[in-house]
Computed example of a mutant assay.
Amino acid sequence: MSSLFSEWLAGQSAEPRNDPAPAEAASAAVTPVEAQAETPTQAETPVQAESAAPVKQAKASRANSEKVVLDAQLAAAIDTARSAIAEVAGISVIGDHLGTLAEGTRLVTHYFACTDPIYRGWRWVAVLARAPRAKKVTVCETALLPGPDSLVAPEWVPWDQRVEPGDLTPRDTLPKVEDDPNLQQGFEQVEETSDGNLDEIPNFEFGLGRRRVLSPEGISSAATRWAESETGAETDFAAKASAHCSSCGYLMPLAGSLRQKFGVCANGWSPADGKVVALDFGCGAHSETDVSRQSTDPAEAVVDDYSAGELEFQEG
Rank of each mutant, 00 (worst) to 15 (best):
L145D: 08
A52F: 11
L208T: 10
G186S: 11
G207E: 02
R62E: 10
V47D: 07
V68M: 08
A243N: 04
G284V: 06
E155N: 07
V157H: 05
F187A: 13
E15M: 09
A43E: 10
E7C: 01
A29T: 15
L9Y: 04
D280R: 12
L70T: 13
L311A: 08
A21C: 15
L174F: 08
A129N: 07
S51T: 13
C140R: 15
Q314G: 06
I201N: 00
F206D: 08
L144M: 09
V163R: 10
E50A: 15
Q314K: 13
L174D: 01
Q184G: 08
D179T: 11
K136H: 10
P175I: 14
K275Q: 13
S51P: 03
A77R: 01
H110F: 00
F112L: 05
E44M: 14
A301F: 10
Y306R: 14
A153E: 14
V213Y: 05
C283A: 01
E315T: 13
I219A: 05
P40N: 12
S287A: 15
P32C: 12
A153G: 05
D180N: 15
W226D: 01
P158H: 13
A272C: 04
K59P: 01
N267C: 09
E87M: 08
G11S: 10
D172S: 14
G207Q: 02
G316C: 12
Q189G: 09
W159S: 14
A63N: 03
E164L: 15
T80W: 00
A89C: 04
A299N: 13
A35C: 08
S27W: 07
A49M: 11
S6H: 13
I85V: 14
T289A: 01
R171H: 15
R171F: 15
S3G: 02
P253Q: 04
G147F: 03
E300M: 11
S292F: 06
V68N: 05
A89L: 06
V177N: 05
F237C: 08
R130D: 01
Q189D: 03
Q73F: 06
S287E: 07
R82I: 05
W8Q: 12
L198Q: 07
P132E: 11
P132A: 08
V177S: 04
V88C: 02
E38K: 14
G232H: 06
L311Q: 10
S13F: 12
A308P: 00
S2A: 06
L198M: 07
P20H: 04
V213S: 13
L151G: 01
E200R: 10
R171T: 15
V137H: 02
D273Q: 06
G121H: 03
G218F: 05
Y119H: 10
D179Q: 14
S287K: 07
G263D: 02
S2F: 04
N64V: 03
P22W: 11
K135W: 00
P46N: 10
K56E: 15
L128G: 03
